[in-house]
Amino acid sequence: MAYRGGCHTTFHHRYHLVWAPKYRFKVLHGEVRLRVREIIRQVCDEMGVTIVNGALSCDHVHMFVEIPPHVSVSDFVRRAKGRSSCKIQQEFEHIRKRYWGQRFWLRGYFSTTSGNITADIIMRYLDRHTHKNGFSPSA
């Protein structure tokens, strides 16, 4: 287990996050999938969030991330979902027509710390579900 540090902190905060498009429509494929992946990576870079592993299935986003103490989980998810929803609907007309109410993602999300189950179990699960367009750091 590797700890990260800031000016006044040392931490190891890892979260298992899952959220889905509204109605669980299978829209995360092709160019949409690549763009969602890119947007979420940009948000992670801006907020100092490290992607440990992740997968983009056709109907949900699944991530294992390390979030610094000054960033709340809800702020990270809010920004990732909000920015990706806005940009996806601006850039892809078929998505804008399907989600005419301007809400791309379901309202909530699933979050748990890696303390409930080991990080190794989460990593194995994500590795089984990672596609070539997953969030793994080496991709």
Results as ranks from 00 to 15, higher is better:
F92N: 09
Y125Q: 08
M123L: 09
G30Y: 12
W105C: 00
W100H: 05
L34H: 11
A2E: 04
H13E: 06
G6K: 12
F110M: 04
I95V: 14
R4L: 12
H129N: 11
E66A: 15
F11E: 12
R96F: 12
V43C: 14
F135E: 07
H94S: 15
E93V: 15
P137W: 07
R41M: 15
F25P: 03
H8C: 09
R14F: 05
R96C: 06
V52W: 06
C86E: 13
C58I: 08
H29T: 15
H29E: 10
R78E: 07
C58W: 02
H131T: 13
V27C: 01
P137D: 14
G82T: 10
E31K: 12
M123R: 14
R33H: 07
G6Q: 09
F92A: 07
M123C: 07
K87V: 13
D120Q: 13
F104G: 02
L28K: 01
K132T: 10
R96I: 11
C58F: 03
W19D: 01
F110W: 05
N133S: 06
R107D: 14
C7Y: 12
R96D: 03
H60M: 00
T9R: 04
F11H: 14
F104N: 04
E66Q: 14
A80S: 13
W19L: 00
V36A: 15
R107W: 13
G108T: 11
M1P: 01
I122H: 01
D59F: 09
R124V: 14
H129V: 01
I117N: 03
R78M: 02
H62T: 01
T112S: 05
V32L: 03
H12S: 08
A119V: 07
F104M: 03
A55H: 07
N53Y: 08
I39C: 04
T118H: 13
K132Q: 07
K26G: 00
Y99K: 02
A2D: 05
E66I: 07
L106D: 13
S136H: 13
P68A: 05
E38D: 11
F92S: 04
S111L: 03
L34R: 14
A119R: 08
G5S: 09
I40S: 11
G54I: 04
S74K: 10
S136G: 10
V32S: 02
V77Q: 02
W100C: 00
I88D: 11
S57A: 11
V49T: 11
C58G: 04
I51P: 02
A2I: 06
I122S: 01
R98F: 12
T113D: 00
H70L: 08
G6R: 05
F92L: 05
V36M: 15
I67D: 15
L34N: 08
V18K: 00
F11W: 14
G115L: 00
K132P: 05
V27E: 01
G48D: 10
V36W: 11
A119H: 03
R33N: 10
R37T: 11
F25V: 06
G48V: 14
C44A: 03
